[in-house]
Design a protein around this nucleic acid. Sequence first.
DNA 1: GGAATATGGTTTCAGATGAAACTATACGGA
DNA 2: TCCGTATAGTTTCATCTGAAACCATATTCC
Lengths: 154, 154
Amino acid sequence: MTHDDAPAERFDLDQFLPYRLNSLADRISQALARLYETRHDLTVAQWRVLAWLHHKEELTAKEIREATRMDKARVSRAVQGLEARALIRRRPAPEDQRRHELRLTAAGEALLKELIPEARDWEAALVAPLSIEEYRQLFELMARLETQLAKLES
Amino acid sequence: MTHDDAPAERFDLDQFLPYRLNSLADRISQALARLYETRHDLTVAQWRVLAWLHHKEELTAKEIREATRMDKARVSRAVQGLEARALIRRRPAPEDQRRHELRLTAAGEALLKELIPEARDWEAALVAPLSIEEYRQLFELMARLETQLAKLES
DNA sequence: GGAATATGGTTTCAGATGAAACTATACGGA
DNA sequence: TCCGTATAGTTTCATCTGAAACCATATTCC
């Protein structure tokens, strides 16, 4: 606060989108992480890998990395943990031995069969106060921000 | 998948709000963190502490913790770093020696005078594709989710 | 007034994480 | 064919983080 205390000078973190978005997302993520962790001993990264494999059948680490934008080390560790628990199977790709094809095992499928409804229920409880239209709009706004962010980063 | 492959069984992580929100927020936060870090050698936690002190003049660690919902250890560390760089001043509260009153120093004020416009510009570039009304709506939806989250956590 | 308890804040400890170094395989050009 | 380079994935390292233990001061109850 100096002499030229123009209104533009004051700054309220609560009105700053990156902060608000991040703190909301963090809280949601942590709450959900506790659920995965306590009920199924999974990290968030592991859950994401499982969910993508459920969605796409077969993927390589790179494809998961691209889909989730997670760091490759993080993906690598998540995959290791899941393989150790025999929730996924890892097989060198026949035409390129550097890559490994990842797939859910039967145990992995079974776990997801429990997990997905839990996750869905939790999300439903969270978004209960939003109308369908508002929910849709929220996704739409996030998508626009993502596109813009990609532009800013390039 | 399995025999009873109902539509409800399929799961697309991209349509899962916690995931989308978190991955968007993470990307935004990291991009901005790079800006604070490379230009001013500040962590996100430090920036938040500074911004709140700018906003409120004088606060204790606990108040900052409540405002930002950051972990108290994280706040403590951010404060230490800022004090070491003489960006804030820390003084035991006269009526309760456990608490410490925190304030920006002149150097801290000066730094914010650079930082705030940068942060504002960056945010403006990010939300450029949204109309004023959409921007307002986004905050409104986030606020509703925050309220609901608090309910779920209680 | 003194013991038990509560509270603000710091430190310790045990993971999680990203960046960068590294390994192994594949590819492209002389 | 052989060498340089690119790519998939792993490991190392330095840092950050939250939970819990801890310390110091304040408060409450007897």
